[in-house]
Design a binder for these strands. Structure first.
Lengths: 104, 104
DNA sequence: GATACACATAAGCACAGACTTATGTGATTC
DNA sequence: GAATCACATAAGTCTGTGCTTATGTGTATC
């Protein structure tokens, strides 16, 4: 059951924004808040949800906590998606791109 | 914004169960309810959410409505996932499987 | 055309979850 | 060691959403 927390975690648009920011480069919680109009506790709570879903992981650095994308969460999504590969139409460009990238 | 409805749609465990049942074979709403302890309106509402997310589509057959997996929704998930391919560890077996299957 | 059936929609309720303010914790700085 | 900083946690509020019962809509059957 808790293996699919990534869906619930990514269902919230604010958490998707946080995840995308971290995908562009790891940073600490304060830096994540820049330009986001979100309170410090709210950010902390969102990061806790993303952590529980293994989409994000932390590296403590002194009094800062550096956050980065956790590949494990993405792998779980890929595994989930792979179960339904029978339904992927061959024409989908995204899948072709995906295939190309993995080929190298 | 509404292009990521699939996350919200799949965040609910009941809807994931419905989707998985349809992935195993298309059927109508009544058949879906079998062994699920879910009311008829609840099922109808869940199917509406899955439809809105393009994860499921309907084919009207007389007074029955046959539901089936809509590849479009899965393609949207694949597209989203492809954006973060830089973070996929090469060791992940699921991705290798995925690659193999798409290769044919 | 009256009835029964398959499903959708409406309206109301109850709980989950995203937010707030307040406070706690641990590390750095003076 | 007192103050400050980065972040986490607690507790309460409010909105969203998944459920319910009731009713509507369209199709098949008699």
């Amino acid at each position: 059951m808790m293996e699919h927390d990534f869906f619930r975690a990514l269902a919230d648009p604010t958490r998707r924004t946080i995840f995308e920011k971290l995908a562009a480069g790891s940073m600490n919680a304060s830096a994540l808040r820049q330009g986001m109009e979100i309170s410090q506790p709210a950010m902390s709570q969102h990061l806790a949800v993303l952590r529980a879903a293994r989409l994000v992981r932390e590296r403590k650095e002194g009094r800062f906590v550096n956050y980065e994308v956790d590949p494990d969460g993405l792998a779980l999504i890929a595994q989930w998606l792979a179960k339904y590969r029978a339904y992927w139409p061959a024409r989908i460009d995204a899948l072709k791109l995906l295939l190309k990238d993995m080929d190298q």
